[in-house]
Simulated assay, not measured.
Amino acid sequence: MRTPVLLLAAALAACMPATGASAENYVNAPAAQRVAKESGLKTAIFAGGCFWGVEAVFSHTKGVKSAISGYHGGTKRQATYDLVSGGMTDHAEVVKVTYDPRVVRYDQLLQVFFSVVADPTLKNRQGPDVGRHYRAALIPVSKEQAAVARSYLAQMKKSGKWSRPIVTGIEAYKTFYPAETYHQDFAKKNPRHPYIRRWDAPKVAAFKRMYPGLYRSGFVTG
């Protein structure tokens, strides 16, 4: 078992920037095909680089009931930060979002994701973080989500919003494994962390500026 000191050290070392990283560019992504009327709470999974920033943005989204950082793509045995961060698993860092479709739809989550969270032109990296575990991907959990995701990626490629080719793909849903406790609600608990201030706070600020109707000031927890 790790001591609290070791847990803190692991958290501070996670998602640390590589040298030569450049600032992120925010794009007003096109509106996606509307999802048919849904009932009850729904879930969606997004891989968009370090899960701290993905979770931070969706935690500020109206209609989102929870945003949980975790791993997807590999095995249960591999679902630890030590292994995933070493780049030797099939996992990606992901966030599982539970949302109320009466307030925010899946297509709107896609638009927010590609506007301020993930650069769809980067392969196996996002922002300062490099490695296949930092890949951007959509992981639909239903046939309808899969259809909307495919349609939206095709729409993005034709939109001319991005100067480089769109390389983000769709991955079949396997099993979501929650990340360690010290990764959950990381931006909320550590607002002065250098990584949060440099990379993730600007994403939240851009979200507030670009989508004021979807933004909420408080974090959702868990």
Rank of each mutant, 00 (worst) to 15 (best):
M1W: 07
A13Y: 00
A14T: 02
C15M: 01
T19R: 05
G20S: 07
A21K: 04
A21Y: 11
S22R: 10
E24I: 12
N25D: 08
Y26W: 11
A32E: 01
A32L: 10
Q33Y: 06
Q33G: 06
V35M: 11
A36D: 14
K37L: 13
K37R: 13
K42D: 00
F46L: 13
F46V: 07
G48P: 03
C50S: 05
F51P: 01
F51I: 02
F51K: 03
W52E: 00
V54S: 01
E55N: 00
E55W: 00
A56E: 06
S59D: 14
G63A: 04
A67W: 04
S69M: 07
H72S: 15
H72F: 14
H72E: 06
G74W: 00
R77S: 14
Q78W: 00
Y81E: 04
Y81F: 04
D82Q: 11
L83R: 10
S85G: 13
G86S: 12
G87E: 09
G87T: 12
G87M: 08
G87Y: 07
M88W: 04
H91R: 08
H91D: 07
E93N: 03
V94G: 05
V94I: 09
K96H: 00
Y99G: 03
Y99W: 12
D100G: 07
R102C: 05
R102M: 06
V103G: 01
R105M: 13
Y106W: 02
L109Y: 03
Q111E: 12
F113L: 08
F114I: 14
V117P: 01
A118Q: 02
K123N: 09
G127M: 06
P128I: 05
G131N: 07
G131L: 11
R132K: 12
R132P: 08
A137K: 06
I139S: 08
I139E: 07
I139K: 08
I139M: 09
K143P: 06
K143L: 14
Q145R: 03
A147G: 03
Y152E: 02
L153D: 02
A154V: 13
Q155S: 14
W162K: 13
R164K: 15
R164L: 14
R164V: 02
I166H: 09
I166D: 09
V167N: 04
V167T: 08
V167M: 05
T168Q: 12
T168S: 14
I170K: 09
E171L: 15
E171N: 11
A172F: 00
T175G: 06
Y177Q: 04
T181C: 01
T181Y: 07
Q184G: 08
Q184N: 08
Q184L: 06
D185M: 05
A187G: 10
A187C: 15
K188L: 14
R192W: 14
H193E: 11
R198I: 09
K203Y: 01
A206V: 02
R209K: 15
R209M: 15
P212N: 06
G213D: 13
R216C: 11
R216N: 11
R216S: 14
F219T: 04
V220E: 11
V220C: 09
